[in-house]
């Protein structure tokens, strides 16, 4: 076993009904890295994240996290080990207040002082959330919802962040902001697995990248090399 990897996925097979959504996917994340996971809609990107979070049933394969096999873990165990996923569309509780959303992010945290401290930390990072702390999540704009979702994941000690399409539905201005935040979070020591359809932006902040096609890993390379790869350019960046 290679000690250098925080997350080490080998030969993963996942099925929906009888259709294989992931076919022998292998993927690694080193400590401190941002890894981009690219591919068309339906290629299996979200499925990969949901498998790591142990929401989906895995047919075959291994997932090692910090040297521990986590295949048989429950989603709660995964969270308690410091892995957080921010899903693609429904990333906040729309019928909970902003502050209650953040508190849900600290669900497994028992220490009240630390919760309070984290809450202050998140409000410092995202002042708009402080202003709207008593409003329902539903009333936030797309950009604020993204902030809240990231804020929720920072409410506990997170070592590996699984981000699913953070730019989805955001105005370009917010997309840039979001990516800055992602880089900041990464610089503070959190490793990130980033699923993105906005391939340029993702590859610009990522260290390495994988490209999925129809459930299989098609390319795997350093981010800068992927950016130069003409095949990828044609397929995913629009030629």
């Amino acid at each position: 076993m290679n000690e250098g990897f925080l997350l080490d996925i080998e030969n993963l097979w996942v099925y929906y009904d009888r259709i294989a959504a992931l076919k022998e996917v292998s993927l690694k994340v080193k400590k401190g890295e941002i890894v981009a996971l690219l591919g068309a809609n339906g290629a299996g990107k979200t499925t990969t994240l949901m498998s790591i979070s142990r929401i989906l049933n895995i047919e075959q394969g291994k997932i090692n996290y910090k040297g521990t096999d986590i295949i048989n873990f429950s989603p709660e165990n995964i969270v308690s080990m410091g892995i957080r996923q921010i899903p693609e569309r429904k990333k906040i509780f729309r019928y909970l207040k902003v502050e209650d959303n953040l508190l849900m992010g600290a669900y497994l945290e028992k220490n009240k002082i630390r919760i309070k401290h984290n809450l202050e930390k998140v409000y410092d990072l995202f002042p708009p959330l402080w202003e709207r702390r008593n409003k329902l999540g539903d009333t936030l704009s797309g950009g604020e919802q993204q902030m809240l979702a990231i804020g929720m994941s920072l409410m506990s000690e997170v070592e590996l962040l699984l981000l699913d399409e953070p730019s989805l539905g955001l105005a370009p201005k917010f997309v840039e902001e979001t990516f800055q935040i992602i880089e900041e979070v990464n610089k503070k020591g959190t490793s990130i697995l980033l699923v993105e359809q906005n391939a340029y932006m993702a590859l610009e902040i990522a260290h390495r990248g994988y490209v999925l096609e129809a459930g299989k890993v098609k390319f795997e390379d350093r981010a800068s090399d992927l950016l130069k790869n003409p095949a990828i350019k044609e397929a995913y960046l629009g030629g």
Binding site: N198, A199, Y200, M201, L203, E204, L227, L237, G238
Partner: peptide, 11 residues
Amino acid sequence: QEAYLGRGKKV
């Protein structure tokens, strides 16, 4: 290009 294909500086 900006809205859809990405605003990468390297376009």
